[in-house]
Structure formats: structure tokens, C-alpha cells
Design a protein around this nucleic acid. Structure first.
Lengths: 160, 160
DNA sequence: AGTGAAACGACCGTAGA
DNA sequence: TCTACGGTCGTTTCACT
């Protein structure tokens, strides 16, 4: 549920160009066949499969379905900047348990935490803010940035 | 490159429980076979295939590889809050073209834009801020929130 | 870590309820 | 929109390099 698919504090894995190329293929289409990828990167089907297995087993990559909240009726998104009074780690765990919150990060700066929320409408957002976030122990202030338009969204890093 | 897989302003698609179940299966493993999914949700392989096709064609869902920036050596992430002087739409487009920026959203609030950056180290972050972001026309102020720990990350919404 | 080949299973198009 | 069914293609295992 929490910290989906990411490990923090691990050291970096060194990838060669072929593995990067394989990742790029799968970033474009996660269901592309290993045979096709093999043709594109110059490797046999079995070799591609072994590399993909290793990449997914080690947690460097995962192949998953990603859905568009807007198209599913969650038309109101916002980032909430949170100033905390107490232990930010405890607060982060509490925020992570709220299903309407899809993203929580501890930060250094004028906010201690950032949380992204996904709601069906404004009422849901108001309720969420007042009854689930602002009333948590240790929340001393919040600032809400309602999303107007998502311009760019990458699930894909590292192979630039 | 920009606005990957998302449409803004479309109306919501209504999904039945079976489609939601299919999406859940693919959120857990994007390469699960249609036959397996069919067994899990009580549908034939062909029916699952048709529904997945429709979901991906309409842009509600996409199946992609997602990688972990931390494990790939991009150890420094931050959210940049940006106050704009001019047209935020133009600025958003310019920001979206910067490869180190993986996320750009236009917001209402004390920031006009939020941009998430992924860097290999602090130097790269400083360079990025000073030579690629703060010097753009129309950027009147920035505030940087360096990530300390990612607590929760969902690529998956809408099927709660 | 890679290839190649054979058995198996998944995927795709089409037909029909 | 679903099931049923063949043909084709992808995946898996294994022996070998």
C-alpha cells in the first residue's frame, strides 16, 4: 500500500545501453513481446526475458497499468503543502493511509510534507481537508494548490 | 513527450465492476495473461482482451514500465513552486521541455506552477534551478522543496 | 550472459449467440 | 458484448556455447 515499488536509500544499479533500450521499449508499451524487443535492441528473445526478469526482480522497474483519474471521474486534484508541529514521519504515515491521497513526500523547505489528493469534486476536497488532514495531530498549517491543468507527467525516469 | 497519456477536460467513463477488476489485476502485474485475468474475473480470454483494448484505446488505462529513479542514481528529487509574471501556459510548455523535469502542473494558489525535478546530485539541481528554470521569462519567484523521503506513490487511481 | 530448438501456452481474427 | 475455436506467434524450458 505504501511506498509502492520504491526503495529508499539503496545504491544505484548500473545499467548498460541495452538494458536502457529495453526499458524504453517497455515504457512505450508494457506488453510489447520479448521477441519484438529483441529485434529492436539486437538480442534474442530469451536474453531480453532474462534481463526484464532481473530488472523487475530487483525493483528497478515494474510493468503496471496506470489509469487516468480525470477520465475516471476524479476531476479535482490538488497538492497540499503541510507545515508540521511534531514528528513528520508519524504524520507521513497517517497521511499515507488516507485513500484519497495518492502521493506523500517528506520535504525540506517551508513545507514539511507534500501530499497530492484526488477527489471527485470540490465538496470531497473540502471534506478531506477539514476532516481528514487539518485535524491530524501535528498539522499546524496547510496550503492547497488546486490543479488547473496537468501539463506533463512521467512515470519514466532514468533513461534520458 | 508532454501530457503523457492523459487528456484533460474529457468527461468520465463509467466502468462496471468487471472492468475495475481487470484494471486491478493489471495494476498488480501489467503482463498477466488475458486468460489468467479471465479466470480471476470470470470472463473468457477474448472478452478480457476486448475490454483491455477498449480501456487502452480510450486512454483510461495504459500499461507501461515504471522505473525507480533512486535505484537508477537519481538520488535528488525536489518539487519547485513557481510564481509566474506572464502567461502560465507558455511557461508550462517551456518547463515541460526540460528533461530533468518529470512533472508539471498549473495550479491555483500562491504558486502558479508546480514542477517536480529529478537529479543525480545537488550540483545538478542547483544548475537546473539557476540556468534552466529561474532564468525563464515570466518566472518571478521559485521555492524549492527538496525530497527527504517518499512515503507513498500511486500510479493507480480510480478503482478504490 | 548468450543462443537455438521444440513443446507449450497465449494471442488474434472471425463466426455465431 | 459475450463465447467458441483454429491458426499464428510468443513464451518457456533445456541443452549448449
Amino acid at each position: 500500500m505504501t511506498n509502492a515499488g520504491r526503495s529508499n536509500g539503496n545504491r544505484a544499479m548500473q545499467l548498460d545501453d541495452v538494458s536502457k533500450a529495453i526499458i524504453e521499449q517497455l515504457q512505450a508499451d508494457g506488453r510489447r513481446s520479448y521477441a519484438d524487443i529483441g529485434k529492436a535492441v539486437g538480442l534474442s528473445e530469451a536474453a531480453v526475458r532474462q534481463r526484464v526478469q532481473k530488472l523487475t526482480d530487483s525493483g528497478v522497474m515494474q510493468i503496471v497499468a496506470v489509469t487516468d483519474p480525470m477520465q475516471l471521474g476524479f476531476t479535482r486534484q490538488a497538492m497540499i503543502g503541510i507545515r508540521a508541529a511534531g514528528d513528520t514521519r508519524v504524520l507521513a504515515e497517517q497521511l499515507a493511509e488516507i485513500p484519497d491521497i495518492d502521493y506523500v513526500v517528506l520535504t525540506a523547505g517551508s513545507f514539511d510534507l507534500l501530499a497530492e489528493v484526488v477527489c471527485e469534486n470540490d465538496d470531497e476536497l473540502i471534506t478531506l481537508l477539514n476532516t481528514k488532514i487539518r485535524n491530524l495531530d501535528g498539522v499546524s498549517a496547510t496550503e492547497t494548490f488546486v490543479y488547473l491543468k496537468l501539463q506533463k507527467q512521467f512515470y519514466n525516469w532514468g533513461t534520458r
